[in-house]
């Protein structure tokens, strides 16, 4: 009888603990994302120097340097000398683009990323039209910044972004390096366009999927001093 009672108490306690834990985690996920967004909202605009290094097996392009301007909520412009390939998603690290519209955050676990304790949160957009199907965020709960992000998209496969932070710029924590890893489809280019009639390499007519990496270095941030504002006003953007 006593044993039965002990089991009952134990079972009730476990149920309570589990319920409490899930409840707290759900709350934590919302709070974590809210804190990240609020922190980034303080950065109204910025100008920074960028250096872009592209590593895709079928593209050879020299590293490019230039300037980036950002203005809330999602205005972004990059200018480099000469021609550059700019990753469609990688340049803008604002959490706004990821968390726009309704979304459901789910706390998953704690994990260490590059020596930093993070909370892993999965974010599922509520809209059926969203191009991003699911994202996983590794959030630093102390600094309220994203350390790593992985998203699966409807049309462009999966991409991963890893953020490295250094010194503070005017008190703001902004990334100094982003490694953007993404899926890329390689189509064979028609011979008439390449002029490569004597190529000794066998041609593969089937499109191949490959991975690409873009490393973006940010430096010399000028935050909330109207630099980007001036730029976008000047451009009429």
């Amino acid at each position: 009888m006593n044993q039965k009672r002990t089991y009952k108490i134990l079972f009730s306690a476990l149920t309570c603990m589990l319920l409490f834990d899930f409840g707290a985690s759900g709350q934590d996920a919302d709070l974590l994302i809210k804190n990240v967004r609020e922190k980034f909202q303080k950065v109204k605009e910025y100008e920074a120097a960028v250096s872009i290094k592209i590593d895709v097996d079928f593209v050879k392009i020299p590293d490019k340097t230039g300037t980036i301007w950002f203005m809330q909520p999602d205005h972004i412009k990059v200018k480099t000398k000469g021609f550059s390939l700019l990753p469609k998603r990688g340049m803008n690290f604002s959490p706004n683009q990821l968390l726009e519209g309704g979304f459901t955050p789910i706390w998953i676990k704690k994990e260490v990323v590059d020596g930093h304790n993070t909370e892993v949160v999965k974010v599922i957009p509520q809209s059926d039209d969203s191009d991003i199907l699911i994202s996983t965020l590794w959030i630093d709960p102390v600094k309220n910044i994203i350390r790593k992000l992985e998203s699966t998209t409807r049309n462009e496969g999966t991409f991963v972004m890893q953020f490295s932070y250094g010194k503070l710029y005017s008190g703001y924590e902004l990334p100094e390096k982003i490694i953007f890893d993404f899926d890329l489809r390689k189509n064979e280019i028609p011979l008439g366009l390449t002029g490569d009639f004597e190529s000794e390499r066998p041609k593969d007519p089937k499109p191949k999927n490959t991975r690409g990496t873009v490393t973006i270095f940010y430096s010399d941030y000028i935050v909330n001093q109207g630099k980007a504002l001036q730029y976008f006003k000047g451009k009429g953007d």
Binding site: T80, F83, L86, L184, R185, N187
Partner: peptide
């Protein structure tokens, strides 16, 4: 065209 899926082009 296959680069346009992942990249925006800047410059001429």
């Amino acid at each position: 065209q296959n680069l346009k899926e992942a990249f925006s082009f800047q410059g001429e």
